[in-house]
Amino acid sequence: MTEFASTTLLLLGAFFYFAGTVGLLRFPDVYTRLHALAKADNLGLGCLLAGLALQADSLAAALKLLLIWPIALVASAAVSYAIARRADALRLAPWRGEQGENKP
């Protein structure tokens, strides 16, 4: 039962990482790519950590895995804000559909 739950969570985690990468490849501008990475990859990491925590030998080891998640969240929240802020400072206009292409 635990094994099944763990496997499911691991596969789900890998799926979200994959979706994040696909978003990075397919989305049209830096802002939308940021959405894809910040949200999908973090959820992927969360699922992965939860799946591995189910396999941990002790409660402390499981909690240690889960502790990684909020730290990684702080990292990506701060980095994605910094990137968005930078893109805005560079006056990058957001993509607004085909007719509104901003490429020169």
Binding site: F16, A19, G20, V22, G23
Partner: peptide, 11 residues
């Protein structure tokens, strides 16, 4: 919710 939503949008 956000992760699932953006995954759907990407895929």
């Amino acid at each position: 919710h956000g992760g699932a939503q953006v995954a759907w949008m990407a895929l």
